[in-house]
Design a protein around this nucleic acid. Structure first.
Length: 523
RNA sequence: GGCCCCUUCGUCUAGUGGUCCAGGACGUCAGGUUCUCAUCCUGAAGAUCGCGGGUUCGACUCCCGCAGGGGUCACCA
């Protein structure tokens, strides 16, 4: 069932009437303020009769890292939570910064994570096109409305003049405000200059679904550029038009836009359109906590996590937990649980540091939750080279043994190689072993020979192996740390492996005895 | 520099005036699970709730100031 944002949906969560009382009311209690006890006074007031529609609108400037994708995730979670729609739009209005193939790469990233969209890039929809460079006519139309109202004008200055103004402002330690230089008689736009918004500066107070009550003075409102001189709109203008036309109910975006909101609010007024619910997601900080995660500082492409064998549901869980929790002590969430429990009200306002160790743990936890057959399907591209020709049944047995040891699929080869190929005898494994190093080689040799004879009589079923290994312990009087280590090293030639009996039964009699013989020959 | 936002264990966080000399998770350390690695279990260390005032019988929770951090001041988004 779809949720609708209307007054009186029952829970009192969504209230009426934000836009009109938005400004100049710092001390006046808002009408229709939510009663719903004061859930951090973040409850959003808005009137709407449409189903929830959220969007993610990246610009095609390369890959996406965890910080950017988390914003998409939150928007997606909101849409899914309310049974609404999620839209993917491409904001490609900066042709200089555009990186070829980014759109495809972004779609691939979202698809991998299971962040599905109902309209937009690649699939079209009722509000096509979803690529801003293909919507230039629309922006021009809306720009004309502003011109007709006397709320837009051509920028007569050269870039050099503008730089001069900016430098002067900087030298005076004052913020640069274009409108301080607004021409007396604002020129008519002929399409070759930049088109600027003629702002009506005033102080604003508004509600942010995450940050709560926000405010800024009139100095935050300026004459920003609507249409650049190359004919493309700026983000500041285009997104407002698109969100309106695409009927977005929420604009969920990163924190760097918070300072621009007063400009947007001013533009909504000039356009006489109702604004969507605004939500500002706090930044994901780099591991050092000094600044937000960025490509410049080596933030990874989310698809790198795919390559390394991370589970998308684990990464989703991890990103969600970066700045959100459900108020209980639950840490591991499935995607359906996230959809059910997610709410903007419980999103943190402070930035959260990216801790890859926690991601690693979470990924392991999700791997352990997977049924063996599903894990087997997912892990198929990660087997060591030597396993390529091995049959499924055998690989599945191996996988069952390493499932609880896997932190990410990329570890599969080093964890399992010895199951598929005889590794060269490495006596160092014995000489550096705490227990075995103390024992002279001839004694070790006898012990291993005894074990070999016993194993030769086994049918290599797990039960029989376990019994014989235990019997061996009694008969030889040696400690498990000695006997088991010795046999384990001889049969695997690996520094670590799953339990001895488990490993042996999967390895099989021929292989196990052959490897013991090789070790015997080397001792 | 102006404006805006943020501030609880190393990290992610719980916490909406008394139940908090602050709870959980990751990480770390120690012990247990017949060998290694891992899982699992148990335990330990780890936060004078950024600092200073105030309000209150009582503040992590409310108010004020300060400090620190972040964001922004583009014909980038």
């Amino acid at each position: 069932m779809a949720w609708f944002l209307t007054a009186g949906t029952g829970h009192g969560q969504w209230l009426v009437g934000a836009t009109k009382s938005e400004h100049g009311n710092k001390d006046v209690p808002r009408q229709g303020t939510p009663l719903n006890s004061g859930v951090k006074h973040r409850i959003l007031a808005h009137k709407m009769t449409h189903p929830v529609r959220t969007r993610f609108a990246p610009s095609p400037t390369g890959y996406m890292h965890v910080g950017g994708v988390r914003t998409a995730l939150f928007a997606w979670l909101v849409a899914r939570h309310y049974g609404g729609q999620f839209i993917l739009r491409l904001e490609d209005t900066d042709k200089v910064r555009e990186v070829e193939g980014s759109g495809e790469h972004i779609m691939k990233s979202l698809r991998w994570l299971g962040i599905t969209w109902d309209e937009g890039l690649g699939i079209g929809g009722a509000h096509s096109p979803y690529i801003q460079s293909q919507r230039l006519g629309t922006y021009k139309e809306w720009a004309q409305k502003l011109i007709d109202k006397g709320r837009a004008y051509a920028d007569p200055y050269s870039p050099e003049e503008l730089d001069g103004f900016r430098d002067a402002a900087k030298a005076a330690k004052k913020p640069f405000l274009y409108r301080d230089h607004r021409p007396e008689n604002t020129p008519v736009w002929d399409g070759t200059q930049a088109l600027r918004f003629k702002s009506d500066p005033k102080a604003y107070t508004w509600d942010d679904a995450i940050m709560g009550k926000l405010s800024a003075g009139a100095e935050a409102v300026d004459d920003f550029i609507l249409i650049k001189s190359d004919g493309y709109p700026t983000y500041n203008f285009a997104h407002i038009i698109d969100d309106l036309l695409m009927e977005c109910t929420h604009v969920i975006r990163a924190q760097e836009f918070i300072a621009s909101v007063p400009k947007f609010l001013n533009l909504y007024e000039a356009l006489e359109i109702e604004r969507p619910i605004l939500a500002t997601v706090p930044p994901v900080m780099g591991p050092d906590g000094r600044k937000k995660l960025s490509k410049r500082d080596g933030a990874k492409d989310v698809l790198d996590y795919a390559k390394e064998g991370y589970l998308p549901e684990a990464l989703v869980n991890f990103m969600a937990s970066l700045g959100w929790n459900d108020g209980t002590e639950q840490e591991i969430f499935t995607v359906p649980e996230l959809i059910e429990k997610f709410s903007l009200e419980r999103v943190q306002r402070a930035g959260a540091r990216f801790d890859e160790k926690r991601l690693l743990w979470m990924n392991g936890a999700h791997i352990r939750m997977l049924p063996l057959d599903e894990l087997y399907q997912r892990v198929q591209n990660y087997w060591p080279e030597e396993a390529k020709t091995t049959n499924d049944a055998f690989k599945k047995q191996v996988l069952a043994l390493v499932q609880e040891r896997l932190k990410f699929f990329g570890e599969l080869p080093e964890l399992t190689r010895f199951f598929f190929v005889d590794l060269p005898v490495n006596l160092e494994l014995i000489t550096t072993n705490k227990q075995l190093a103390k024992i002279e080689q001839p004694i070790l040799r006898d012990l291993l020979q005894t074990a070999r004879d016993e194993l030769a009589a086994s049918d290599f079923s797990l039960d029989d192996l376990t019994n014989r290994l235990n019997g061996l312990l009694e008969r030889t009087g040696s400690k498990p740390a000695v006997l088991f280590s010795l046999v384990r090293i001889a049969t695997t030639q690996a520094p670590s492996s799953p339990g001895l009996a488990d490993s042996l039964t999967v390895l099989g009699k021929d292989t196990a005895l052959r490897r013991i013989d090789a070790t015997l020959a080397a001792l």
